[in-house]
């Protein structure tokens, strides 16, 4: 038996969803805990483990990849959920160790199936997440051996085209074990891709100052209590990482443009909006 908890501050969606899921999951031996509005309100998972269905964008407390890290630290497997979140933020949160991502528009039956999959310790690849993986695959190339094979790519495309796991397996002649192998490789490739773009806390602050608040270098350095040289070094490093991760997308972008694009992609401006504007 697994515990299930929803972490979402949009009660209008969560309440009817939970109401529908409680009997459905109970019939399969799972227990639904009361929803929480932020991850700090969630306690540790029980000894048999549990699934935290967590909104990618949370207004209060840790959000995105920070929320995933926090929940995993409490022993939860995380299934990400969102009405709509920027691609970079979703992929970063998935790379942090989430087992899947679904959009809130999905029918309740599909969401229940995704929870079942994650509760069983397996990865869940929705069409929405496959779309994000496929976009990343097209935009950047990992070193040989870490990138998906052409067969993996075709399987991934089947998910993007809306086929279910069973349909994709049948289409490509994959056994359950081989399908799990593909899913592991797809999630690992995303982790490797995001690792190229791993940013320090200080670099994220620079992204917010330059990319969201549009401060000039001098004002940004002053606001962040660092020298202009240090700020420029951070900007150079950020652009270098972005170029390594997405060479095609980064071509011709200035440091400031890169910062802006990355800040929006990681949804760093959303919170800044609330805090500063």
């Amino acid at each position: 038996m697994a515990q299930i908890v929803f972490v979402d501050d949009h009660l209008m969606v969560v309440q009817p969803l939970v109401a529908w899921l409680i009997p459905h999951l109970a019939a399969r031996g799972h227990r639904m805990l009361p929803p929480a509005a932020d991850v700090t309100a969630v306690g540790p998972a029980g000894p048999s483990g549990g699934v935290a269905v967590c909104d990618v964008v949370l207004k209060v407390g840790p959000s995105g990849s920070d929320a995933v890290r926090h929940l995993r630290g409490l022993g939860w497997r995380v299934l990400l959920l969102s009405g709509h979140a920027p691609a970079g933020q979703v992929l970063e949160a998935v790379a942090e160790g989430a087992h899947g991502y679904v959009e809130k528009s999905q029918p309740s039956e599909e969401l229940a199936a995704a929870i079942e999959t994650v509760a069983a310790g397996r990865l869940h690849l929705s069409s929405a997440l496959a779309d994000l993986f496929y976009g990343g695959l097209r935009a950047s190339r990992l070193p040989p051996g870490r990138e998906l094979t052409s067969v993996d790519r075709d399987v991934l495309k089947s998910f993007v085209q809306g086929r279910t796991e069973a349909e994709a397996a049948a289409l490509h002649g994959l056994t359950t074990a081989r399908m799990q192998g593909f899913l592991s490789r797809a999630f690992a490739a995303n982790r490797a891709r995001r690792a190229l773009l791993s940013l320090s806390d200080r670099e994220r602050e620079v992204l917010v100052a330059i990319g969201c608040r549009d401060l000039d270098a001098e004002a940004a350095a002053r606001a962040l209590h660092m020298s202009a040289n240090t700020l420029n070094t951070h900007l150079r490093n950020i652009r270098a990482k972005y170029r390594t991760a997405f060479p095609d997308l980064a071509a011709g972008l200035t440091q400031r443009q890169t910062a802006r694009r990355l800040a929006l992609d990681l949804n760093l401006c959303g919170r800044t909006n609330h805090q500063n504007w």
Partner: peptide, 22 residues
Amino acid sequence: ERMRSGLHDGVLTVLDGMARDD
């Protein structure tokens, strides 16, 4: 971003809630 935030926190929430409201 404001539009996305507004849709995400407001309109989409309402619409997704309505879509699930029996």
